[in-house]
Each structure stands twice: as structure tokens, then as C-alpha cells.
Design a protein around this nucleic acid. Sequence first.
DNA 1: GCTTACAGGCTTGTATACAAGATTGTCGCC
DNA 2: GGCGACAATCTTGTATACAAGCCTGTAAGC
Lengths: 253, 253
Amino acid sequence: MNPATANIEEAILSAILAGRINPGTRLGEQKLADLFGVSRTRVREAMMRLETRGVVQVSARRGWYVVEPSAEEAREAFQTRRVIETGLLHSLREVPPDVLKSLKEHVAMERDAIGAGDVHSRACLLGDFHIHLADALGNRMLTEIIRDLTARTTLISMLYQPTEKAEESSHDHEDIVAAMEAGDLAHAARLMDEHIGKVEAGLDLTAKPDPLAGLRALLSPAAFAGNAPSVPHTHDHPHDHSHSHGHPATKED
Amino acid sequence: MNPATANIEEAILSAILAGRINPGTRLGEQKLADLFGVSRTRVREAMMRLETRGVVQVSARRGWYVVEPSAEEAREAFQTRRVIETGLLHSLREVPPDVLKSLKEHVAMERDAIGAGDVHSRACLLGDFHIHLADALGNRMLTEIIRDLTARTTLISMLYQPTEKAEESSHDHEDIVAAMEAGDLAHAARLMDEHIGKVEAGLDLTAKPDPLAGLRALLSPAAFAGNAPSVPHTHDHPHDHSHSHGHPATKED
DNA sequence: GCTTACAGGCTTGTATACAAGATTGTCGCC
DNA sequence: GGCGACAATCTTGTATACAAGCCTGTAAGC
């Protein structure tokens, strides 16, 4: 594949995985083209690849948008992850020591990030755990699949997760690694199943299937005093104008 | 997505699934553009999507080629299928009656095709079984993943499978469905694991990692009498010239 | 006779131009 | 004042033009 095109694709995907780009964000071709210093053609390539991978969508003659998975799609994504990740643990006969070591280090990093209150890298690490785990099998194909899936569930969490129970997730990860170390992979699989189930159960899938959801909350409690309180444009500002995309998407303020 | 572009993508992918296009086949942009009556742009889109899905590859300024998975990739593909499909059966709590009915009908069709000696639809059906099974969960995401994976293993079989044990495969499918009907999904998963293992074991992964493999066989047994026997161009004729792609890839003659 | 350099043709890579549709702001009308 | 039509603007969709690199066939040199 082309290095430049791959870079654009990678840049956007990892920004999503890291939670730096919100679901529903519009990604204009020209804007990205300017940003990366190439023509629209290359950006379009990257976008179409990402569309195939299920992380962006095109709305005809309106633009590219980071997907906002529906409740139905959210359920599918979690089910898919459950199927694949428990299947992975089940088919793992033994865990190589270096993989175990790397996973333990990862969990330690999670705890540090949580302790430091680093929201940004925290979310990133929690998703990364599963990708690391996929690496355990040394199967690139599977890793790629889980990576794409994780991107989707990350977006889902951003859409539907009222409160991120980071400590609980990290603790689950720890237990899973412990079971792996003990060689009880069936148990690890069961824990993984529960873990994903918990994350899914923690979502409020009735919350915001549409961008107007934020509105409704304002409308119902008698509001509408004098001036509509500016309706803080939920998305549609991919990169303000310069490329200093630093603010880590702190939505819940 | 665009209907026309999607059609090109679909057409090529299903031709691969049906075994009508051989691994290693070159797919020229202009040729396909003429064939579908569009410009190269659209063909390129379709190709790049297919590249993301892992079924074609581009060789810089030479052309697009249907992938020829290496032995390593073949192992990964089968392992991935094993992980996902056993995981699927494990996480299936119960099997809806209509799904069971549909699977039984499918297996019956397999047997008919085998009985009739219909090589073409036979291979197609054997792959389709797994896709149908994915439908059992009603999870489009998972179905899509398995579909792409099946495309790859189909190509792998075309590359490495000396003799296709169709009857055995169909019998395996039958057993799996029987276990599902009996409600013993753990058993079904075990059977699936064995089944995929058998298919993988039936491959000769040392066979032809390169297009010259057919050559070596000719070279070693003292051959080279007078004229090199024409080296029947192993691939490189996507659609001869008109679009009457009817010959069902009977390679093993 | 064999090897090497070169030229021509063919294929993709990339940018650009133009067409078609969507959105939004404005003006006229009721 | 409110509503609807219209025009300006912006965005993607598609095709085409040209650049750049690979492959092959040919001819010259050894």
C-alpha cells in the first residue's frame, strides 16, 4: 500500500482509538487534504479504506463522518468481541512467558494512568489491552480484526457510556491475566466473557441515537428561559483550523 | 456506498468465493473498467476496498493481483476461523428452529452437488456453510468477517489443496448440525474445531508458494528434452477478452 | 553466441477539472 | 411577522490528463 495513504488512514484510526476524535465528527476531504499536504484523491482512498473497516461513513455529497453506531450495532459489536476474544482464549493452549510479562506490564500501566487520573491515556490503554492480548497468538489477521472492532467499541463507549468504570475494567484485566498465568484458560475465557458483558451492561443504549439527544435534555426540564444556551455544537469541528489537535475530548464536564 | 462501486466489489468477491477467479490472477484496472463500463476511478475504489478486506493486492505500477496467501498466512487464516467459529458456537445459547432448518437444507444441497459431481457449486456451497452458520447469530458484523475469511481460505484451498475431500467436509457439516440440533453446542464447537483442523491438515503447505512451483516439478525429473513445454501461463488472464467467464477453474487436470 | 544497454509500450499513481447534489442564508410574498 | 422559493456556496462524485515506473523486446558490443 502507499505509505502516505496508509499514514492518513493510520493517523485517523489511531486518533479514534485514542478517543481524540468523537463519533459523528465530520471529516472533510479538502480539509484533511490540506492538513496532510496531499490532494483529495489520497484522502478519499484513506476514507474508503476506513469505511470498509467500519469506522467512517460517507453521506452522499455531504461528507465523511465518523460512525455513530446504533444501539443495535453496539450490541453486535460487543457480541462479536465476546465471540472472538473468548474463542481466542479457549484456543490458546499455553501462554508464552514473554506475552504474559508484556500483559502484566500493560495492566500495570493501566493502573498508573488511572491513579494519575489521566483520562486520555487511560481510555487508550483499556482498549489496547485487548489488542495486546490478540498479539498473544501471534496472529496478525486476528489482531487486525480485533483492532477494528476495538475502534468501534471505543466509539460506542464515547457515545453511550455515562460513566467509565476504569478501575473495574482494569481489575478485570488483572484477573484475566492471573487466570492465564495460572494456566486456566477456560477460566480466563469465562472472565473475559463477563468482563465484556459488564462493559456492555454499563452502557446506556437508550441514550443518544441522534445528535439531537443533547437537545432533548435541555428541552424537557422547562428550560428555554431567554436565550437558547448556545447549543454547544456537538461535533463538526474536526480540527479547529490549525493542526493543534490536543484537547482530549473531555465531553463529560 | 455507491451502488456501482459496490457491484464491482461484490462481483469480484463472489467470483472468488465461487472459485471462478484463481489466486494470482491479474486484475487490470482498465480492463475491468471497460468490462463494467465505468472509468478507472471506480475500479480503483473497488480494488482498494478489496485490498482492505485482504483479497487482492497491488504491486506498484504493475497491477492488482488476487492474493496468493503464503503458508504462514494460510495457517493464520485457518487459526482465525477456528477461533471465531468455535467461539461462535460456544456463545450460541440455543439455535432457532428456522436456522436449524436452513442449515439442514444447506447440507442437503451440498450432498446433492457432490452426488451430481458438480465441482463448481460444490466448492461454493462448502464455503457457504460457514457463512450461513454465522447468520445463525443474526450478527452482520460477524457474518462479514467470516465471509472475508472464507474468501481467503477458498483461495488457499485453490492454491494448496491437492485433493478436495468434499464428501468428508459435507459429512462434518452434517455432524455439526446434528450436534446443534441436539443442543450440545460444546460438542458442535469441538466438531467444528476438528473439521477446520482436518481441512487445514489436508493442505500441502509446502506446495507452491511461488508461481514457479509448477516449473520445478518439470525441471527435476531430468526433463528439458528439446523445447520447454510451453509453460502454460499459470494465471494472467482474468477474463479472456469477452465477459463469458464460464470455465469453473478446473486446474487439476 | 552471450550479455548488457536502451527504447518503446503498458500500467498504475496522483492531481486537477468539472458535474451534480446538499445546505444555508436571503429576499419577496402573504 | 411568518413562510416559502431561490440563489450562492460548499462538498462530494466521476472522469480525464499527465507523470512515473516496470517489463519486454531489440540491437549493439564483447
